[in-house]
Nucleic acid binder design. Structure first.
Length: 527
RNA sequence: GGCGGCGUGGCUCAGUGGUAGAGCAGCGGUCUCAUAAUCCGCUUGUCGUGGGUUCGAUUCCCUCCGCCGCUACCA
């Protein structure tokens, strides 16, 4: 286990701000956020980076369409993105925009270093150029030999001198790295793809373009700007101040512990990026985690097909934690998942309303109703009954492993079956509502046990459903003996000794908690 | 075409060389503390197709069918 306070650096992919985020991008951020929150609980000092990828042709085109200069446009988009991430309770500690000067400075420093090391060379590129797009087109993009966006125009054979990165020179070193660091590419299924790719031979990649004003000028040839990936990937270090006057963060957090990315950009992160770092003589990230995609009822998310779903719509309808729960539980992080309102409703009602929310309600209600919320003398009760044969220490270990490996769905399933179902069953079996009539002390023992189950739930849900977890943990005076900010999974096994008697501190309305996940009606059947 | 993966009850999936499991949905029952929630029980499967290895395969091998990923610059 990593020592406490050891730095942990986690990143997500930077997004193109030529349109608003959709639930697929949200999936990535929530998955990364759960990991960030989990690592914080383990005592790590977490730096969690997100951001937008702004130095692209499409972005400047989009800005032009709206009659805006690129910078005000990307700044406004960044504001919108941050608004969404904030609504979803994503706990990033930094948000980089690649149009920021810190990124420009670091990029120029980096490319210069790689150039000086002799891994960049100039080469003539000949390709089909579309005047309408002001960009080169590849054979694959063409429709009947013409640009799909400008069918009326002929494409021209144009020659341009660009800078190339000698990626081909790194094949052996990359393969060697994969073999000696099998954990580098995750999940494992992606490793094979990348090994194949690299074994089949890498070509040098062009890393600059001529004649663009929006972008980062190449320091050793100011007529050229740095192109796409050689610019975008660098955000991971420029955000840490690489190449600036103050490299404190860089020294502290690089290399990254994990880059969380979409499966479609695996090769850039697992082949190009490490090669770039090797070329510059910098350390490589420890792991790259490629998550799956979210589909809309089986259809690929696409703006033009109308299958994109705005996270804010879902958020406004269902709330933050239900949103997070759906994606963390229903969509296995390393695989593809599906979104549908029907499934959302099912999962919400069964897992959140019926099991989780209701356990909270019935526990608090009984404590208030029977004991005015004061479980006097409960500090002397060892709440081991509710867990039965469940070993909470082992459960903590198991969950630690699952979450560390990004197996959130499995982790949540385990929490539900091992903790919540068990606690609900415990109520059914012990019948505190009957005990109160015959044996007040025995009833109190049961309720003290349930209070402990609430405490355990609050701790275990903290990385996934932060708001809900805090409500659970705040339901009783647990805070007095183990502060909310200092919790980690291992504490589920040890209700603090020498603690005060349990006392309900939950918010009440007319002596009852307000349902935290009011059931939602299933959407009407569509004919 | 090449490399890889998948195909298990209505849905989502787990799983093992000895003739299958979970959750959800559905059905029945139950308690009454609770958001008519909980808890208990039940129904459905030729484990894609055909063949092979084996005493025996859903699990190993091959064929076929279907689906999917990667095969260089879109999360």
């Amino acid at each position: 286990m990593a020592p406490a306070n050891e730095p942990f650096f986690i990143t997500t992919a930077i997004d193109y701000p030529n349109s608003r985020p959709h639930i697929g991008t949200a999936f990535e951020k929530i998955g990364a956020d759960a990991q960030a929150r989990f690592q914080r609980m383990k005592g790590r000092e977490v730096h969690f980076l997100m951001g937008n990828d702004e130095n692209t042709i499409k972005v400047s085109q989009r800005a032009a369409e709206l009659g805006l200069e690129p910078k005000p446009y990307v700044d406004d988009m960044a504001r919108q993105f941050k608004e969404v991430w904030s609504a979803l309770n994503v706990s990033n500690t930094d948000f980089i925009q690649t149009s920021q000067s810190r990124h420009h400075i670091g990029c120029r420093k980096f490319i210069q270093a790689v150039y000086d090391a002799g891994h960049i060379f100039k080469k003539k590129y000949t390709g089909l150029y579309c005047n309408g797009c002001e960009a080169f087109k590849t054979e694959k993009e063409l429709v009947e030999g013409r640009c799909p966006n400008h069918q009326s125009q002929e494409l021209k054979q144009v020659e341009e001198e660009n800078y190339f990165f000698r990626l081909s020179a790194f094949e052996d070193r990359l393969l060697d790295y994969y073999r000696t660091h099998p954990e580098f590419i995750q999940p494992e299924s992606r490793l094979n793809e990348i090994m194949n790719l690299v074994e089949s031979g890498l070509q040098d990649v062009s890393i600059s373009r001529k004649g663009f004003v929006w972008g980062i000028p190449v320091p050793f040839d100011e007529d050229q700007t740095i192109y796409v990936w050689f610019d975008a990937l660098l955000n991971y270090i420029t955000a840490l101040g690489y190449g600036s006057d103050d490299e404190t963060l860089y020294k502290k957090f690089w290399p990254a512990d994990v880059h969380v990315i979409g499966k479609d950009i695996t090769r850039f992160h697992c082949a190009l990026w490490p090669a770039m770092l090797m070329a510059a003589g910098l350390p490589l990230p420890k792991t790259v985690y490629a998550h799956g995609f979210v589909y809309n009822k089986g259809l690929k998310i696409s703006k033009s097909a109308g299958t994109a779903i705005d996270p804010m719509t879902v958020y406004e309808t269902f709330g933050t934690d239900p949103f997070r729960y759906y994606f963390l539980k229903e969509c296995v992080f390393g695989s593809d998942g599906n979104f549908s309102e029907e499934r959302f409703t099912e999962l919400y009602n069964s897992d959140l309303a019926n099991n989780l929310g209701n356990l909270y309600s019935r526990t608090i209600s009984m404590c208030v109703r029977y004991f005015e919320g004061n479980l006097e003398g409960s500090s002397a009760i060892d709440p081991v009954d509710w867990a039965g044969d469940l070993n909470l220490g082992e459960l903590a270990d198991e969950l630690d492993g699952l979450v560390s490996r990004f197996e959130y769905s499995q982790a949540l399933q385990t929490i539900w079956s091992q903790v919540l179902d068990r606690a609900n069953r415990y109520i059914q079996n012990t019948e505190p509502f009957k005990l109160i009539k015959t044996d007040r002390e025995a009833c109190k023992v049961v309720l003290a046990n349930l209070a402990d189950a609430i405490r355990v739930t609050g701790i275990l849900l903290k990385p996934f459903l932060p708001d809900t977890a805090e409500i659970f943990y705040g339901a009783f005076n647990f805070e007095a003996s183990a502060p909310w900010t200092s919790l980690d999974f291992t504490q589920i096994a040890k209700p603090s000794t020498g603690r005060a008697d349990y006392q309900v501190t939950a918010a009440l309305t007319d002596g009852k908690p307000v349902p935290m996940f009011p059931k939602i009606q299933p959407p009407p059947e569509k004919p």
